[in-house]
Nucleic acid binder design. Structure first.
Length: 610
DNA sequence: AGCACGCCGACT
DNA sequence: GTCGGCGTGCTC
């Protein structure tokens, strides 16, 4: 009797065999089926048939029902799932379910027999990066790339749903229902109908978020990724894929081009450009006219009443308000944003091992290095010269908002944080908030954007904090450039390459330095790192699991960069252990995953946050 | 992953 | 004395 080999959304690579029962003639690989699984019922995905009769027939259960009347996955997506499971440490089942897990049962429409993948051959693959001078140019780039539609379907990825929706509306006006919107926030029914239209259709233009990288058309002719460095391209659940990377892999397998339309260079893009693995798109690495101005803040030049702004910032702000331009004040509120500065010496808060900046832990008790495992207790004095003249300032959005309202009673001031909705923000001419104000910069012209404390961004832990700030400022710079808006970066000590790059509009200073740092310290994009998270309550059991992992790391030459709950500080209880690993190139990914599974650890390749 | 079974610690 | 959290094992 024929067996149906099935995989599930569980971290096991094993396939489970079922008997077709009454559905014998109507099952094919790529369909989802409902089956008994232990004491529960589960949905699985059929991967193949086997004729094996060896195992006892009795232990093999029958399929309960078919979830789909036709396959929801193509052969190409199957092989993409193999890539996902290998690259991002998941089972094949988890990879397949990340593509079609959210779909309602798919009924009534059969895939046209001719729609099997036409493998175009690898020669059509190329990677191109477009760096926008102004955000307004994005539309025309995307529209021109939509011209590729003549040769087959095109997938457009956007970081946020609202951006995908707006491009989709625009495209619907041009090509009608050949424009399809696809993202994870669609209700199952709409998501399913979009999926089956993509399965059957030709010359489709898909606009979507990271999930749309799995759009199932058989005639894909190009991928377009907007702001390809954006952190929302990273899936937070297993498999923790990165959509730009998946798109690139898919493009290379299909032999089609991939375009990135970016408001900023990222370290990764720059690294690839430098390696020569990318054709430099125009002046990708070149300069743009800068609208960024650095303002050094210190005792002497802060405003009397608005103590979080320098006098220069205040006068520029008042000037803008008089001209009836909108002004935004941005502050990174995370963890209270402690700003450390020694009044006596310059080098006080640097790590002795790797010369990187030290930051204060959330509890304020420890100084932590953003790159290595250095952690020294903070005793309210400068670790360099011992001076007690160390300033720790703490500002919040709320406090700044109240002070501003008091000082400018006639100005319409609004607050923006991730928790405050647009309606609540209302009409305004002065906006105070976290990076959530970015959304407003898209929707209204602004004359001035002030970063209260660049340090509040740069001091957040993680090897990419400088890069994130660099990208954020470049994005805002692109948003403001057409309207002649300006950016002020307040900083207590603006001496890094980063500031020079931003103020001179030349990304090279920062990117060059950053690539060198990543290279010598062994961080992405130069070296792959893997984060392993281990949970456990009882010390004894936890230690035995830790031992499984640590023995394995030792045996395979996998370097552990740090471990234990002391670094970085773990917020959610004391029961999570994190390892940051630096495996040797070409390591056995499947084997590492197997060991991690044994120890109950979750792996993430090249994590953004460490 | 999710569920049941089974082991030790603190409670009426 | 049991209740329950957590660790372990199994799923065709």
């Amino acid at each position: 009797m024929k067996r149906i080999e099935t995989v599930f959304d569980i971290p096991l690579d094993k396939t489970f065999d079922y008997l077709p029962g009454p559905f014998s003639g109507s099952i094919s690989p790529g369909m989802r089926i409902r089956v008994p699984f232990g004491r529960q019922k589960k949905t699985g995905i059929v991967v193949s048939f086997s004729e094996r009769e060896g195992i006892e027939e009795a232990s093999c259960k029958e399929i309960l029902k078919l979830s789909d009347s036709c396959p929801v996955l193509t052969e190409e997506l199957f092989s993409l799932a193999v890539f996902l499971s290998d690259r991002y440490f998941s089972s094949l089942g988890q990879a397949l379910f990340s593509m079609v897990g959210g779909l309602a049962p798919c009924r009534g429409n059969t895939v046209a027999p001719g729609s099997a993948i036409s493998v175009a051959g690898k020669e059509g693959f190329k990677e191109e990066h477009i760096i926008l001078k102004a955000e307004e140019d994005r539309g025309s780039f995307n529209r021109s790339l939509a011209g590729k539609l003549e040769n087959g379907s095109v997938i457009f990825l956007f970081p946020e749903v609202f951006q995908a929706e707006s491009f989709h509306r625009e495209m619907t006006d041009v090509i009608g229902d050949r424009a399809i919107l696809f993202h994870g926030e669609l209700k199952p029914r709409r998501r399913t109908s979009a999926w089956s239209e993509m399965l059957r259709g030709k010359n489709i233009l898909v606009s979507g978020t990271r999930l749309a990288v799995f759009a199932p058309m058989g005639d894909i002719s190009a991928f377009v990724v907007n702001n390809s460095y954006d952190s929302s391209y990273r899936e937070q659940q297993v498999p923790r894929y990165e959509a730009w990377e998946v798109a690139r892999y898919r493009a290379s397998m299909l032999g089609v081009p991939i375009f990135s339309v970016d408001a900023s260079l990222s370290v990764k893009t720059y690294f690839r450009l430098k390696q020569g693995s990318l054709p430099a798109a125009g002046e990708a690495a070149g300069r743009r006219e800068s609208n960024v101005c650095i303002v050094r803040t210190g005792r002497k030049n802060v405003d009397r009443k608005l103590s979080f702004l320098s006098r220069d910032s205040v006068s520029m702000m008042e000037e803008s308000i008089l001209k009836e331009e909108k002004v935004a004040i941005i502050h990174n509120n995370r963890g209270g944003s402690r700003i450390l500065k020694c009044e006596k010496c310059e080098a006080g808060f640097s790590c002795r091992t790797c010369d990187s900046k030290l930051v204060l832990s959330e509890d304020g008790k420890t100084l932590l290095c953003r790159f290595c495992a250095t952690a020294i207790p903070f005793e309210k004095k400068c670790p360099g010269c011992g001076s007690r003249k160390v300033s720790i300032r703490l500002y919040g959005i709320e406090k700044m908002f109240n002070i501003l309202k008091q000082e400018y009673p006639s100005v319409r001031i609004s607050r923006v944080t991730s928790k405050i909705t647009e309606a609540e923000a209302g009409d305004f001419s002065l906006l105070v908030g976290t990076t959530a104000v970015k959304k407003y910069l898209h929707k209204h012209p602004f004359g001035l954007v002030i970063f209260v404390s660049s340090e509040s961004f740069l001091n957040s832990p993680g090897y990419r904090s400088e890069e994130h700030f660099f990208i954020l400022v470049n994005e805002i710079s692109a948003l403001l450039s057409k309207g002649g808006g300006r950016i002020i970066l307040q900083s207590r000590n603006p001496v890094m390459e980063l500031y020079r790059s931003l103020s001179e509009g030349d990304p090279g200073f920062f990117l060059e330095k950053e690539v060198l740092a990543r290279k010598s310290l062994g961080y992405p994009p130069c070296t792959e790192i893997v984060k392993a998270e281990l949970k456990g309550k009882k010390a004894g059991i936890l230690n035995s699991k830790k031992k499984i992992l640590e023995d394995y790391f030792g045996e395979k030459g996998i370097a552990v960069i740090y471990s234990g709950p002391s670094f970085p500080p773990v917020k959610k209880g004391k029961d999570t252990w994190k390892y940051l690993l630096r495996p040797l190139p070409g390591f056995d990914r499947r084997d590492l995953r197997k060991k991690a599974y044994e120890a109950g650890a979750v792996l993430e390749s090249d994590p953004d946050r460490i």
